[in-house]
Amino acid sequence: MTNKTISTQQPQNELIKIQEVMEITTFSRNTIYKLMGNGEFPRLSKVGRGSYWKRREIEQWINDLTPATDEQVQEAAEQAAKAARKKVH
């Protein structure tokens, strides 16, 4: 029996839409645009009427992230819960 490696890697020069960016990062649309507005996330490219991100830039951004501390994770969770409560009320 031979071991075969199946490559599921997407082309790195691929342009992707917001839905796929959201799936890759697990961020909401609002979070992505907020980070982008703060200069903390790769910029989009306009092609015709569409907005796209370069897959390689998103993947590089993720790879460059420093691991979050437990305190940062807790703070982010609290902020998300607070934002969710505001939407409900």
Rank of each mutant, 00 (worst) to 15 (best):
G37I: 04
A77N: 12
L35R: 12
A84R: 12
V47D: 01
N30A: 15
L35M: 14
H89V: 09
E71M: 10
S45G: 00
M1A: 14
A76W: 06
Q60H: 03
P42M: 13
S45I: 04
V73C: 10
K86C: 08
I6V: 15
I6T: 10
K4M: 15
K34M: 14
R85C: 01
T31C: 11
S28G: 10
R29M: 10
T5P: 01
T8D: 04
R29K: 15
T8Q: 08
I16A: 07
R85P: 01
A83Q: 11
K86Q: 11
L35Q: 12
M36Q: 14
K4V: 13
A80D: 07
I18A: 03
L65Y: 07
R55A: 00
G48C: 15
Q9F: 04
T2H: 11
R43Y: 02
G48E: 08
N13H: 11
D70H: 10
F27V: 05
G50K: 09
A76Q: 06
G37P: 03
L15M: 13
Q72T: 11
E14K: 11
F41E: 00
I16K: 04
R29Y: 08
I6L: 15
A80T: 04
N3G: 00
Y33L: 14
Q10I: 04
A84N: 07
S51E: 10
E57I: 00
R43I: 02
A76V: 05
